[in-house]
Design a binder for these strands. Structure first.
Length: 567
DNA sequence: ACACTAATAT
DNA sequence: AATATTAGTG
């Protein structure tokens, strides 16, 4: 039975009542399976040979939503026959045998999934998704536009009713739907029930994003390689921020993982207009990216459906989504290079994001600089010396106060910064600093670009002025230095900017700060320069940890009694 | 060829 | 609003 989205949206306790055709010639195994399925409130019709099953399907197709077919060495052909014949029915194969060629063949013949026995409840529980998928696919191809809202509402239902099916415009027409849905969908798609069976392994890969657990840190970003106007092939990549590249194509059937990927794509519509669809967005643990945040409180369970059902594949042009994680990478790259050397191409290299283009980076850099230029001087516009001329991009920025995106109270020593919070908003930043991830409490929408009201720092500028080697995160301590007479301490101070070396109340040149801070960080055993008070160890450790340094030389701990041993 | 900025387009 | 793109400049 071809389930339509209408059916689904009207389906009360979906997926309860899902009608499952079970074809298994081994009555024991069939019975066992049946009871498991029934435990989930599925309705099971058991058959022990394909002919019976097929005749049932043809005579009363409405009686089955999905089929589970056991395939074994003896009766492969029967199973294949079923597959070939019952193309309208999403069919899941299951078997003890697991040789790739058999799996392949099943998939090629239109099976929606191949599950290895034994079939756990977990494996069985979600078989309904194939029904849903099929319904969606059908929407794209052969249903009228009026279906759109239905689809929406269905989606919303699936999303844990978070989003109410406000009909999103009709301009997303079938063409788009269709194209969005197929492409590298491993499943046979196409509403009209013809399963264009994937015949090659390549085809089978790819639609699912996934992998999980591994990403302890950043989000990934799918990016498309820019290409000439409308056709150039584009490449979609998914990368982890740990400088590792994860392939986008992942074997079928894996569950979604806590990644964070987003791509915005545009699809050409029939009428020539363009429609935009935000592709997928997964969250990394707890860190919500826009979409997922909008989707549900429980992104972990829902986002998968969300993303994979709605839109995958079909890429054309895409925008880079500068997720916090990606941005962080960017910032770190800028850091590492030093502000002076931070030019698009180098940043690009450092970021190691496959598919990211220099243009992307340049664009982002432009924005980044603008941001700094505009935000920073605001609160502290004292004559910021144009730094040395070798570099034209000497945008005025306040080098020293660079806030990590967490607005840690540690970092903000100045003035009445939290008008709305009498006290620092967050108890201790250690925990979140400890993990590379972004804290849950972070207002994801805004952290990125906008500082909290009252906070005069630049959210953008996570670590901004890193020492060329060593860690980039001097900022934590720096802020406490900023009013101190730091500069004279650095023998190598850069005076080209015209900054009086001893000017106590003025900000030092960036290099100076760098040096001093680096010095302080790298040689904690040395006395701090005059006027410096030691940063709290907490801050230091937290920051180091944030930077991925989890082991510290013992002496660090001795530095400051306030160490809580957070590592 | 690249980087930068500003303006503009999507 | 965030990015991309483009144009002009160095």
């Amino acid at each position: 039975m071809i389930c339509t989205t209408n059916d689904l949206s009207a389906w009360k306790d979906f997926p309860k009542g899902l009608k499952v055709l079970l074809l298994d010639e081994d009555s024991n195994s069939a019975a066992e399976l049946k009871s498991k399925l029934e435990a989930m409130d599925y309705i099971v019709y058991t058959f022990c040979n394909e002919n019976e099953a097929l005749s049932a399907v043809s005579s009363r197709p409405e009686s089955f939503h999905v089929a589970i077919v056991e395939i074994n060495t003896n009766k492969k052909n029967g199973s294949f026959k079923f597959l070939e014949t019952a193309k309208d029915l999403p069919t899941i194969m299951t078997s003890n045998i697991h040789c790739i060629s058999t799996v392949m063949k099943c998939i090629a013949l239109g099976a929606v999934e191949f599950l290895k026995k034994p079939l756990s409840e977990e494996k069985l529980r979600n078989i309904w998704q194939h029904v849903v998928r099929k319904a969606f696919n059908a929407v794209g191809t052969d249903l009228s536009e009026s279906v759109k809202p239905v689809k929406e509402s269905l989606v919303s239902m699936l999303y844990l009713q978070l989003e109410n099916g406000e009909p999103k415009d009709k301009d997303l027409d079938k063409t788009q739907d269709a194209s969005v849905i197929h492409e590298n969908d491993p499943e046979p798609s196409t509403g009209s029930d013809k399963y264009p069976a994937p015949s090659t392994p390549q085809i089978e890969q790819g639609g699912r994003l996934s992998a999980n657990g591994d990403c302890q840190d950043h989000a990934n970003c799918s990016i498309e390689k820019e290409s000439s106007e409308q056709d150039g092939e584009s490449k979609s990549v998914e990368t982890t921020s740990d400088n590792t590249i994860a392939e986008v194509t992942i074997p079928v059937g894996q569950p979604q993982g806590p990644r964070d990927t987003m791509v915005t794509e545009e699809a050409d519509l029939v009428d020539g207009t363009k429609g935009k669809s935000t592709t997928y967005s997964q969250t990394e643990n707890g860190v919500n990216s826009k979409n997922s945040q909008a989707v549900a409180e429980k992104p972990s369970t829902v986002s998968g459906i969300h993303s994979s059902c709605l839109n995958k594949a079909n890429r054309k042009k895409s925008k880079v989504d500068w997720t916090p994680a990606l941005h962080k990478k960017f910032v770190q790259a800028v850091d590492q290079l030093g502000i002076d050397q931070a030019i698009p191409s180098r940043i690009l290299e450092l970021m190691k994001i496959e598919g990211l283009t220099r243009h992307n980076v340049a664009s982002h850099l432009q924005k980044y600089r603008m941001h700094r230029k505009h935000i920073l001087p605001k609160e502290d516009d004292r004559r910021w010396p144009q730094r040395d001329q070798t570099q034209r991009s000497c945008y005025p920025h306040k080098p020293i106060i660079a806030f990590p995106p967490h607005y840690s109270n540690h970092v903000v020593p100045v003035g009445p910064l939290y008008p709305m919070w009498g006290a620092p908003p967050y108890p201790s930043s250690i925990q979140m600093w400890g993990s590379q991830g972004y804290p849950l409490w972070q207002p994801t929408e805004s952290w990125h670009w906008k500082p909290y009201p009252g906070v005069h720092a630049d959210a953008w500028g996570c670590p901004v002025m890193p020492p060329p080697h060593g860690y980039s995160s001097a900022f934590t301590q720096v802020s406490s230095y900023q009013n101190a007479s730091v500069f004279h301490c650095s023998g190598t101070m850069d005076n080209r900017s015209g900054m009086p070396p001893n000017s106590v109340e003025h900000q030092p040149a960036e290099e100076v700060i760098d040096k001093v801070v680096k010095e302080a960080i790298n040689k904690p055993w040395l006395p701090l320069p005059l006027g410096l008070k030691p940063p709290s160890t907490d801050t230091v450790l937290a920051e180091l940890s944030k930077q991925g340094i989890s082991t510290f030389p013992p002496h660090i701990y001795g530095l400051n009694s306030s160490c809580h041993g957070t590592t």
